[in-house]
């Protein structure tokens, strides 16, 4: 991580290189029918926006425990801009959507790109403003926190409804948007867990505070495991009970598939069973190794879930998926390593 410390030009170069590489691979190599970019966007936008949303929610509830990891979490805000721009290149691939053949007032290519781009951009702008003000501990930070959360909710809801749900028209679930922003928040908590452990290893200065933060993060993770499964169950139960073909199709496609049917329970284990049972004992919440493992499991679970959402309906290139994953992971590491100048403290 230390090697990634650099000045603003250096960071800009890294972003540019990763961005260009992804664009070249996606536009020139992969072709219009390949949706690897969509998977990358759907996953990383959740993680990036979730980190900022976690800090915003903590600031609004006057939580003290966030302080030791605040800068690291806030420093991911440039990623949202990166994703906004990357999103525009999805414009080359909009034919993966069934509605592209029969466009209407809401679902047409230009409007789809414009509304989502503007929402992402606004989410970025407020994330940026919030990150700066929050670093300075200024009066205005709460106002930006509220604005950011509003746009976070709208942006994540549209990710769910527009980017993912429309792949499978006429299937719909009204909770899908809510499910996505809660999941995004959940992934933010998971990243906070990883950052806690990482910072604990790095510095010995405020390890007392960090240990408390770790415990609180783990408690929040435990709570969100239960909350997540509640939302999952709320959707599953309604669809199972109603038993209407257009609603069940989504589940049937995935659960009756020989491979996906076996992978799907893993999501439930990664996002609920494992974190819930393993973090249940009071003491395990302060065991850094366990919390780190659970954090990684949760992030992996969310990735797997998004993969399962997309696999049956679009074509993905495993090579590209992995490459893009590594590229964005590198960017995350880069911004977090440079948090000292990205988020200036007063």
């Amino acid at each position: 991580m230390q090697k990634l410390r650099m000045n603003s030009t250096g960071l800009a170069v890294i972003f540019l290189v990763v961005g260009t590489a992804i664009v070249i691979l996606e536009v020139l190599v992969a072709g219009a029918q390949n949706a690897s970019l969509l998977l990358t966007l759907v996953f990383w936008v959740a993680l990036a926006e979730g980190c900022i949303a976690l800090v915003a929610a903590a600031e609004l509830s006057h939580a003290q425990w966030i302080l030791p990891i605040k800068r690291a979490l806030l420093s991911v805000y440039p990623i949202i801009l990166f994703i906004s721009i990357l999103f525009l290149f999805l414009g080359f691939k909009l034919d993966i959507y069934p509605w592209a053949a029969k466009q209407n007032a809401w679902l047409n290519k230009p409007f789809f790109l414009i509304r989502n781009f503007i929402l992402l951009l606004l989410a970025f702008l407020f994330a940026w403003k919030f990150a700066v003000e929050s670093g300075k501990e200024s009066e205005k930070k709460n106002r930006y926190a509220v604005l950011y959360i509003l746009f976070f909710v709208f942006s994540q809801s549209l990710v769910a409804f527009d980017w993912v749900m429309t792949l499978e028209y006429p299937w719909f679930s009204t909770l899908f948007g809510g499910f996505f922003f809660v999941e995004s928040f959940y992934s933010g908590i998971a990243l906070a867990g990883i950052l806690c452990v990482w910072l604990l290893k790095q510095s010995t200065e405020d390890s007392d505070k960090l240990e408390k933060t770790l415990k609180d993060t783990a408690t929040l993770m435990f709570g969100f495991a239960l909350f997540w499964v509640g939302l999952f169950f709320a959707q599953y139960l309604v669809i199972w009970y109603g038993n209407i073909p257009e609603e069940t199709s989504f589940l049937v496609t995935r659960l009756s598939d020989p491979v996906l049917g076996k992978l799907s329970p893993l999501v439930l284990i990664a996002l609920f069973v494992a974190p819930f049972t393993l973090l249940l004992p009071q003491r395990s919440k302060s065991r850094s190794g366990l919390v780190q493992a659970m954090s990684m499991l949760i992030i992996a679970g969310i990735f797997l879930e998004r993969l399962i959402f997309l696999i049956p309906v679009v074509s993905l290139n495993p090579f590209l998926v992995i490459l893009e994953f590594l590229g964005l992971a590198l960017l995350f590491a880069a911004v977090i390593a440079n948090r000292h100048w990205l988020i200036r403290q007063s």
């Binding site: 009204t174 909350f227 709320a234 139960l237 309604v238 009970y241 109603g242």
Partner: peptide, 27 residues
């Protein structure tokens, strides 16, 4: 707390009546 009102909402959402049968009902 969360489960009780979810269950109340499912009194409605379990049916297939339009306006009742929807996944967002519980939250």
């Amino acid at each position: 707390v969360i489960s009780v009102h979810s269950v109340v909402s499912w009194d409605f959402a379990m049916s297939v009546i339009p306006g009742w049968h929807t996944t967002i009902f519980a939250p």
